[in-house]
């Protein structure tokens, strides 16, 4: 099963994924429409912990605490991608799901999908409609450093292991010297 992975060594925190996600989930599909639109929302958030940046979003856990916690039939598992999906029509914004999600991947907002003019649970939907027509999730396509990759989980783990082993044996990573210097210096910032 394909999943979205993040190579945090490569994330430069440009937030292109956030914008691409918001465009994808906006009815106008245009960056201009996002400006000042309170109903626009991004399901991915770039965060920084110490000096590591990464795009954080729903991991579509299986089993998922949030799905188990939902008392209104709004959180369901999609058969196609085995993704965790919100049905805004059934969602009562009760926050039972958010209360148990360790990644803080669920927020509440009034969006263009709100059927009753109020907030509902908002989270990553895996861009299922894009995947169905052979595209990548919007955030993955937006990532110019290939920090976000959409790939089969097994092959990703293997390639990562290989790369790590290689850098261990050869004794250097692929990071250019100037980028390494930058990261070293950045560690001295607050």
């Amino acid at each position: 099963m394909k999943r979205i992975f993040i190579d945090y060594e490569k994330c430069v925190a440009c937030k292109a994924c956030e914008i691409a996600c918001a465009i994808e989930h906006h009815p106008d599909k245009s960056v201009l429409s996002l400006v000042g639109d309170k109903k626009a929302h991004s399901n991915v958030k770039v965060i920084a912990v110490e000096n590591i940046n990464f795009a954080s979003s729903c991991r579509h856990c299986d089993p998922a605490y949030c799905v188990d916690a939902c008392p209104s039939g709004a959180l369901k598992r999609d058969r196609f991608m085995n993704a965790v999906i919100v049905d805004p029509y059934m969602c009562k914004a009760c926050a039972m799901c958010a209360m148990v999600c360790p990644f803080d991947a669920i927020t509440f907002k009034k969006t263009y999908n709100s059927p009753f003019g109020r907030d509902h649970a908002v989270k990553c939907d895996f861009c299922i409609e894009r995947i169905k027509i052979g595209l990548n999730p919007a955030c993955v396509d937006a990532c110019k450093t290939k920090a976000l990759v959409f790939t089969d989980s097994e092959s990703f783990v293997k390639s990562k292991e290989k790369a790590d082993l290689k850098s261990f044996l050869v004794g250097h990573s692929k990071e250019p010297a100037n980028v390494k210097l930058f990261k070293e210096l950045k560690k001295e910032m607050l």
């Binding site: 008392p71 209104s72 039939g73 029509y89 059934m90 009562k92 039972m96 009753f116």
Partner: peptide, 20 residues
């Protein structure tokens, strides 16, 4: 769903309470 049913009072449709 007892969780959903107060929303019928506040004006949302009855079918949303039948959670399964």
């Amino acid at each position: 769903s007892p969780c959903s049913m107060p929303f019928y009072i506040s004006g949302e449709p009855i079918d949303t309470v039948f959670w399964k």
